[in-house]
Design a protein around this nucleic acid. Structure first.
Lengths: 185, 185
DNA sequence: AAAGCTATATGATGACCATCATATGCGCTC
DNA sequence: GAGCGCATATGATGGTCATCATATAGCTTT
């Protein structure tokens, strides 16, 4: 059906498809939420059909646990300094790019009702995000630096959630910009 | 079936039931999310059965739009001064009381994919929350006060979302307390 | 106190979805 | 270059859920 992209049995190719499915699941879940994402949607996103899903995962839940572990653009990517990270995190592009952006903001309020495995993965991601911010903070090492990172992350996530939730573009921009100015000295 | 609570046709009683259903829907939605809340769950919460739902609402979506408008404890309630409001909002009780707490934190990351009516209602709630904080801020009226309120609300919501998302009680408390100390001077 | 109006209950229907059994067809091996 | 093994596709099945048609029962009016 597809041309060259779809070798069938070459050793190691299954793993590639597997990762493609996980990536598609991560995107679909951020787009449609945990409950709203069906197996069919995930597989269509990966360019496959729903039946083949179970050659890779035991159940939908298993896949969602993994997908939560998927690399999170906003949380893990940039090694730049804090101001640049903040500008990227609080950019209009990130507000509009729910599907590929920070999963903590996209799924945060759904976490309390997720399966334990999913919550564990989310907790790990959140800790990574806090550590990332803490290490890039100017007073890294001083007392209170960790607390300060907690607050910074809370403000980042809260501002992104609000800027996305609201259907008023002016308010959305105002939230982003107020948070950005507050956080960048 | 029930004893005295269930008069059938007394004028005005339908409205009371109606409000009971809206309240039940608001709780159920905060508990189970927008997609995860079924008509049966809402009606059971209201002490009725699923069929009667359609005597009150045209569809599930219609009810959900209304439920989003429902008064939100954390967002609309207290007229006290800012520090008291913050202590309540960032209390452990509020972290644990998803069902009756702030709907913005409980549903924020689900908002981008909701129906227009729901988003409009959410936007109004968020604006009310911002105004509430702005009015109670000590520098109410001075330039920048509104921007400052935006940041305060973002930090409040973000901290609550994170404290609830995480499955590590210590981290949950740390986020709450760091945000609280940062916001109360 | 009987009849009628109307709020709620019961049960049916059709859609959607996760899961699984089985079919198909691509490359690798000989 | 023919057959075989394995990844993916197809189609079936059972469960869940929203919606609706119809049944029931309590208040109200006379």
């Amino acid at each position: 059906m597809r041309s060259a992209a779809l070798r069938r049995t070459t050793p190691g190719r299954k793993d590639a498809t597997h990762e493609r499915i996980v990536g598609a699941a991560a995107r679909a879940i951020r787009r449609s939420g945990y409950g709203g994402t069906g197996v069919a949607e995930i597989m269509k996103d990966a360019g496959l059909t729903h039946g083949g899903f179970y050659a890779h995962f035991a159940s939908r839940e298993a896949a969602e646990g993994l997908a939560a572990l998927e690399r999170v653009a906003g949380a893990a990517a940039p090694r730049r300094a804090l101001p640049a990270l903040l500008r990227a995190y609080l950019s209009r592009a990130h507000v509009e790019g729910v599907e590929t952006g920070c999963a903590v903001a996209a799924l945060g309020s759904e976490m309390p009702r997720q399966a334990p495995g999913v919550r564990r993965a989310a907790t790990r991601r959140i800790k990574e995000m806090i550590d990332l911010v803490a290490r890039q903070s100017p007073d890294w090492g001083r007392p209170g630096a960790h607390q300060h990172a907690l607050v910074t992350v809370a403000t980042m996530v809260g501002a992104l959630v609000l800027a996305r939730a609201v259907d008023d573009p002016q308010l959305s921009d105002a939230v982003r910009e107020a948070a950005l100015e507050h956080l960048t000295p």
